[in-house]
């Protein structure tokens, strides 16, 4: 199964195994990872599953939908070009090894 590495703001990194069909957010919450809140359960409503995708991976992710784009304007930590909502990143085998950074805050 593809694995994702989450890097916390303090530099500590955590590798999380994903299950098939899961989003990066679901993998993170299933492992009880701190730093992904996911208040809305993946409904693209809350923007509390915000991550910064590693530069080297950014281009390899499917493009974001309009609703994700709009939501990212409401994140608690600043939006950057690498900002994505982890609930909208479905983990496919091609994304094995994906690296994302966690923002300072989610609310």
């Amino acid at each position: 199964m593809p694995a994702i590495t989450f890097i916390h703001p303090d530099g500590k990194s955590e590798r999380v195994e994903t299950a098939s069909g899961e989003s990066a957010m679901q993998a993170a919450t299933r492992h009880g990872l701190d730093g992904i809140l996911a208040e809305c359960g993946g409904n693209a409503m809350c923007a509390t599953c915000h991550v910064y995708v590693d530069e080297s991976w950014l281009a390899r992710l499917p493009a974001m939908a309009d609703d994700e784009d709009a939501l990212l304007d409401g994140t608690a930590s600043e939006r950057r070009p690498a900002s994505r909502l982890s609930c909208q990143i479905k983990v496919t085998p091609e994304l094995d090894g994906l690296i994302v950074r966690l923002p300072e805050r989610q609310v």
Binding site: N43, A44, M45, A47, A70, L71
Partner: peptide, 14 residues
């Protein structure tokens, strides 16, 4: 749903 999601979005909450 898309309409109400936008009306009640995080940006609207700000």
């Amino acid at each position: 749903r898309a309409v109400l999601s936008k009306v009640l979005s995080p940006t609207a909450m700000k």
